[in-house]
Structure formats: C-alpha cells, structure tokens
Amino acid sequence: MSSQLLLNLFIAFLWMLLNDSWSGSAFMVGYLVGLGLIFMMRRFLPDSLYVKRAWALVKLLGLFTKELFFSSILVIRQVLSPRMDFSPGIFSLRTSLQGDWEITLLSLLITLTPGSVVMEIGEDGRCLYIHAMDIPEGQRTLVKTIYAFEKAIMEVTQDV
C-alpha cells in the first residue's frame, strides 16, 4: 500500500521536474497523472489500489466527526441538567481488532468521543475497560458506536 503511495509521489515529483516548474499546481497535475498510471497498472500490483483505503480513512474521519458532535451534545446536556441523575461506571468490552496500532487507534477514538474513556487494557490486549458517563442507557449506544468504529478501522487496515 505504502509502496503505491511512494510510487505516486515519485511520478508527481518527476512530472514537476520534467515540466521545469517548482509549483504546487504542477505537482498536483503530476499526482493525478500518477494516479491514472497506477490505476491502469492495478492488476499487476500485489495490493488493491491505495485509494480505496484512503477513502476508508476519510469515511472513518467522517464517522468520528459525527460521533464527536452528537456525543458532545449529550455530555453538554448532562453538564447543564439541574439534577445530576446519570450514573457513571466502568464496563468491559472485548474487541475483535488485532494488532497494537488498531487497538491504539480504537482507544484513541473512544477516548476522544465524549462520554467514554478507555481506562485500562487487559493483559491480553483485547479487553478494554471503559469508563462511561451513563451506564444503563448510554452503554447500548456506546457499544454500537464502538462496533461501528471497529468496522471502519478494519476497512482501513485490512485488505478486503
């Protein structure tokens, strides 16, 4: 995957040099030309086109922004509620992701989403202990969100 990106950047750089112009626009044109070349050669390359993963990454970012926004509203409502009638607690969740990077990314996203903090990761590295603002009601939606994150991360990191 990264070799395709490097190849693309190399073609863009070469295009810029051949055009004898050191400008961002020539680089962008070269990048698009390189993308077209790699697209035509995609059947000879071992991995699938890296654009697919870049798109998956964009989708992950979109999902994250959405969650950040909606759960912020939830937490702000709890901050402003006259009686603090929510019940924070710690629950555990087994993740199906593998590899340090994927789990780190998942924990980062969970912790950035308001209303949940990853407190500890179990011995085997698969079990997340999550502190949540509102256990009985919030947990169900939270778990759903986390599974959506998991799926999006898998699309980025694993070749499907």
Partner: peptide, 13 residues
Amino acid sequence: YTRAHAASKSSAL
C-alpha cells in the same frame, strides 16, 4: 472520573 470527561473531551471540541 467524570471530571476528566468534561476537562478533556469538551475542551477538545
């Protein structure tokens, strides 16, 4: 625990 939520998240937003 709940204070850390308020301090880190909302300020990130």
